[in-house]
Design a protein around this nucleic acid. Structure first.
Lengths: 289, 289
DNA sequence: AAGCAATATTGCAAATATGCAATATTTAGG
DNA sequence: CCTAAATATTGCATATTTGCAATATTGCTT
């Protein structure tokens, strides 16, 4: 049974004529005529009596009218509650990001995002460890590598240049190098743990491993070592602060890329799509490079 | 809004895939695909998210599902109402019955019935599952319970006594119990699935659950387990066969009753009334008890 | 009773929806 | 990890539905 037939039936019952129903439903008279006939044939009974040039309901028609009106009310309910209501996507989205990004950029971005989508709740997992994405410890990962894990999908949102940073305290103790080769005569903060895999530190360990006096696994902590005069450090430019002195760029190691990644299964989940889109735009606006 | 769109929506929601819905509605996949897209555009919101290659309802979709199911129920009601008006002694009657009854009695009864009413076409749906009577998957159900579903009407056609059955193969292995208490020292075939609700098996699970070695959801299959010597089984007496040894009746659990049921809306449909009457007589003639 | 006006019915052309078949995409089993 | 099966998606030909316009019917007015 074609459910639309009931609309035609209701309209004829109310107007008492095919032409009235046609106007009501904004279709041609002949359509109404043919659809009523088809419907009556289908159910095997007359719904209307053609008397006095009017369509009057038969007994069966009257019974059907009651039932049909209920259905119509239900459809009205759909129109009121569903159509155009554009229900806000909601739910939880878990983002994991390394400290520097998590501290410096994401809070601002997320606050802004929630102005647009207040019902999407964001959970920010700050960690330099790579969270397991396949068992959904996190939905979205912001990661800084030169090439991302192959089973994840996403986009590179920006390129991060690295520089050598110093501080007033360091300068007072040891002076400053003028170029990258002079690092051989200076003291460095190095990486350990997962951070060793970053291109800048691979390069550092290859050329200046002996200069490293202290190692840590957190870029921000590293920047505080610099501030306190413990040594020079290789840091991405986004770690710049007034207390630090940016000396010169590290050309020789390939730059890090910031990737925004998610699991393929989640690609089409609306709330995750929205967050991905927003963050992509936010990052690229910030680093218009 | 096209009211038929809801049919498509409901079907996708239930199947979780476009192809499933297409099979269900007997149209092409691409039709489903396009109608869903059109519908989502029309109401201005996503109804499904594609996760893990499945169509999962969004928040909006869930809200619509509630409303849509009500509407579907109303349409089912209309269908029954219309069919209920049919007073001609011809047409299709769908009967659902559990395997044992369907194999053993109904073919004979139906053949006989059709000698008298060749214009009433019978469709026999053999299943131990309970078919949905509200949407007319079946017109008449033969069911074996102690008390039938409350929204259906009909009559109890006979009482079925249950007995413990064994076989030669079993006797050779374990000997036979002399009374019901000795079952504690024997091995039983038990019920699973919907059949657990039969009084005999409720009682069995209460007193001899530990003796059950194998379970299945089909009485005939159970009787073959008995035949092969796998264990003893509780079976209704109509499962008697020369290969089985009927030991003693189960007095303590209330007997099953065979009910012949139909939907109240179909009560006055002539062809259904005729089938009901004939089957009632056939059953009570067979079991003059 | 004749003519008028409103409504109903039918043939044919245009618009729309559907199925088919080819191409992606995804999943599950080896 | 790769292949085969299942599922989605798209373009194009076909089938169905609809609108238009011409014709028929009904009821009302004069």
């Amino acid at each position: 049974m074609n459910w639309d037939s009931l609309k035609v039936f209701l309209s004829i019952a109310r107007c008492g004529s095919l032409s009235g129903a046609a106007t009501d439903l904004e279709v041609n008279h002949s359509t109404i005529f043919r659809r009523l006939n088809a419907f009556e044939t289908e159910i095997g009974g007359q719904l209307f009596e053609r008397v006095n040039n009017r369509y009057e309901l038969t007994t069966l028609g009257h019974e059907l009218l009651d039932l049909a009106q209920n259905i119509e009310n239900s459809f009205d309910g759909i129109n009121r509650h569903i159509v155009g209501k554009d229900i806000q996507p909601k739910g939880l989205v878990k983002i994991t990001a390394p400290n520097n990004i998590a501290y410096r950029y994401l809070p601002r971005y997320i606050t802004n995002f929630n102005l647009h989508y207040p019902d999407i709740q964001i959970e920010l997992l700050v960690s330099n460890q790579e969270f397991n994405m396949s068992n959904r410890q996190a939905d979205i990962a912001v990661r800084s590598t030169s090439s991302p894990a192959e089973h994840l999908i996403g986009r590179q949102v920006c390129t991060l240049n690295w520089s050598v940073f110093a501080s007033k305290a360091y300068e007072d103790k040891f002076g400053l190098p003028n170029n990258i080769d002079e690092l051989a005569k200076h003291v460095l903060i190095g990486a350990t743990g997962g951070m060793c895999r970053l291109p800048a530190f691979i390069w550092q360990d290859k050329h200046f491993a002996d200069q490293v006096i202290t190692r840590c696994d957190d870029l921000t902590a590293m920047s505080y070592f610099v501030e306190s005069g413990q040594g020079l450090a290789f840091l991405p430019d986004d770690q710049s602060r007034p207390e630090l002195i940016k000396l010169f760029a590290i050309q020789d190691s390939q730059p890090s890329n910031i990737w925004l990644l998610t699991h393929p299964d989640l690609r089409n989940v609306e709330r995750i799509k929205l967050v991905m889109q927003y963050l992509t735009k936010a990052f690229s606006d910030e680093w218009a490079c």
